[in-house]
Write a protein that binds this DNA or RNA. Sequence first.
DNA 1: TAAAGGATTTTCT
DNA 2: GAAAATCCTTTAC
Length: 204
Amino acid sequence: MVPLRAAFFDRPTERVARDLLGRIIETGTGATRCRARIVETEAYLGEHDLACHAAVGRTARTEVLYGRPGLAYVYLIYGMYWCANAVTRREGLPSAVLIRAAEPVEGVDLMWKRRRAARRLVDLTSGPGRLCQALGITGPEHHGKSWNQPGLRILEGRPAARGSIVVTPRIGISEAADWPMRFFVRDNPFVSAQAETRKFLRTR
DNA sequence: TAAAGGATTTTCT
DNA sequence: GAAAATCCTTTAC
């Protein structure tokens, strides 16, 4: 399978977020290779977007967001979990897509080992922290690296059909004006079980 | 099923 | 010192 190239990520962030649905995220090589089909993403648009880490400007933490399209922005959340993003748009424009959920397609045994708390299959990769744990993505190992290299890749796969994609408005899940746009595959069981998503699915 | 609280560390006020 | 692009467990209805 073919990895996505930098040009894929050098486009408006919302476009990249939508187009990543159905693509294959891959970690490891040989016996440790794991693959999963991306089913949920979020768009963080830039300094003007209060939901985006780059809203605070250029700091040590946000430096990678200003980097080349196609880099991995990996950060620690709540002191415990890693979250993985793909940097979008040209160098100097700080924006990224958070990969929130995926559907395991290869290396599932290893995912079960890494996700000790998981009881059901959907617990493996339904959420940004869970996904990183299942795939073995960490800041020390992967932050600032390219998504197009052995051991850390996003492959072309087959993009999700347009009719199967749901896009939430920035205002629509919660009242917060700084809520990000969320993109996901309709009715996919791996779409994050986060309360706001469930609420949105019920009321639409 | 839902709501609440704890874990744990970095970042910024 | 508080909040954070989260997850897990416990407790309550």
